[in-house]
Amino acid sequence: MKQVIVGNLGEIPPASGKVVHIGDQEIVIFRLSTGEYRAVENRCPHKGGPLAEGIISGKFVYCPLHDWKVSLEDGKVQAPDHGCVQTYPIRLRDGMLCIEMVEQLQ
C-alpha cells in the first residue's frame, strides 16, 4: 500500500467531484453532501465516461454520458446495468486528503 497526498479540504464543494491525475492514473475524489469523501477510478465501466462530471445523489453517482448509476461505497453499477469501478480507501490526515493505493497499480 502507498499513501498519496492529494490536497487540502476546501477545494471540493459538497456533492461534487475532483479529478486527480496520479501518474497516468485518473482518479476522482467525491465530496458527498454529508461531508464524507470517496475515491473511485474516473472511468465508467460502460464506455469510459468521466464519473467526475456526474450528478451525485447520496452515495451514488450518475454517469454523465448515459446515466448509469454507480455506488461510491463498493463501486458496483446498479441494476438494470452491471459492472464495477475500482474504489480506493481515502482518509483525512492533518487536513490533507490521502488516498491509499496498491503499490503495483502505479
Binding site: G7, E11, K18, G23
Partner: peptide, 12 residues
C-alpha cells in the same frame, strides 16, 4: 475556474 475546470496533478 479552479474548482470547476482544473484538475489535480500529483506525482506518484
Amino acid at each position: 475556474r479552479k474548482t470547476m475546470y482544473e484538475e489535480i496533478h500529483v506525482s506518484p
